[in-house]
Amino acid sequence: ESETFDVELTKNVQGLGITIAGYIGDKKLEPSGIFVKSITKSSAVEHDGRIQIGDQIIAVDGTNLQGFTNQQAVEVLRHTGQTVLLTLMRRG
């Protein structure tokens, strides 16, 4: 069981404050995608409180990250504006 949710964030001096990890899993058993690996102290993400380590980032400002490499996803996140809309999925 999984839930998908949107989080809109405004960057602070730390930026968004997440590091991400790309993961290619076994299609049947484990998900592939871009996941939140860590959250920086005092960052926008930590202050917001809704995003957790292990959440999958589905889209950034409407750009679907399906099939993106870790590096491609980093580039998408790097080129966002001051306000960012993240679409995430959390597995229950």
Rank of each mutant, 00 (worst) to 15 (best):
T63N: 11
V84R: 00
G81D: 07
F68A: 09
Q66T: 11
I20R: 03
E30T: 15
Q72I: 03
Y23N: 15
A21Q: 13
E1I: 13
T10W: 02
V60D: 01
K11W: 04
V76I: 12
H47T: 14
G25Y: 09
E8T: 15
H47Y: 13
G49P: 05
R90V: 02
Q71I: 06
T19C: 08
K11D: 06
G67V: 04
T19G: 11
D61K: 00
V84Y: 04
Q56E: 10
T87S: 08
I24A: 14
Q56V: 05
L86M: 09
D55E: 01
V74D: 14
V7I: 12
E75Q: 11
S2E: 15
Q52C: 08
G22R: 15
G67N: 12
I39F: 07
S32L: 15
G62Q: 07
G54Q: 02
G49V: 02
I20A: 06
R91Q: 14
G92L: 10
G54I: 00
L9R: 01
N70C: 15
N12S: 15
I58V: 13
K41I: 05
L16H: 04
A73M: 06
E46T: 06
I18C: 05
L88D: 01
H47W: 07
T19F: 02
A21T: 15
V74I: 14
L77N: 02
I51F: 00
F5H: 01
D26A: 11
S43M: 07
G67R: 07
I58E: 02
I24L: 13
T87L: 02
V45H: 06
S42L: 09
E46K: 06
F35R: 09
Q82H: 13
R50A: 06
T63A: 09
I51V: 12
R91S: 10
V60C: 08
L85D: 04
D61T: 02
I57V: 09
L65S: 03
Y23E: 11
I58W: 02
K41D: 08
V84K: 01
T4V: 11
I20H: 02
E1D: 15
V74P: 03
L29S: 14
I39Q: 00
T83S: 11
Q82W: 02
Q82D: 14
T40R: 14
G54H: 08
V7L: 04
Q52H: 11
Q14N: 15
H79Q: 05
V76C: 14
F5L: 05
M89W: 08
G25Q: 11
V7T: 04
V13I: 15
K37A: 09
E46H: 13
Q71W: 06
G15P: 07
G81P: 05
K37D: 12
G81R: 08
L86F: 08
L86R: 00
L9K: 01
I34N: 04
A59L: 01
T10F: 07
T80R: 03
Y23F: 11
I34S: 03
L65A: 00
G33T: 04
E75A: 09
G62P: 01
G17N: 04
L86D: 00
L65W: 03
I53H: 03
T87Q: 06
I20E: 04
T87R: 12
N12A: 09
T87V: 05
K11M: 05
E75Y: 05
D6Y: 06
N70Q: 15
T80M: 02
I58D: 04
G15V: 02
D6R: 11
R90F: 01
V13S: 15
I18Y: 04
Q66K: 08
T83W: 01
G81C: 02
Q72M: 10
D6P: 02
D26S: 11
S43H: 06
V76K: 10
Q14T: 12
I53S: 06
Q56K: 08
L65I: 14
T40C: 10
S42W: 12
R91V: 05
Q82F: 03
T69P: 05
I53P: 12
I18D: 00
R78A: 10
I53M: 06
S38N: 11
H79G: 15
K11P: 06
L65T: 06
N70W: 12
F5T: 00
D6E: 15
R91F: 07
S2M: 15
L16I: 09
E1H: 05
H47L: 15
E30L: 05
I57P: 00
T40M: 13
R50L: 07
D48P: 04
S43I: 08
G25W: 08
T4H: 06
L86A: 00
T10Q: 10
D48E: 08
F68W: 06
E75L: 02
T83A: 04
Q66F: 09
G81N: 09
A21F: 06
G92S: 13
T63F: 09
G62H: 08
K41F: 03
L77E: 00
A59D: 02
K28H: 09
T87C: 02
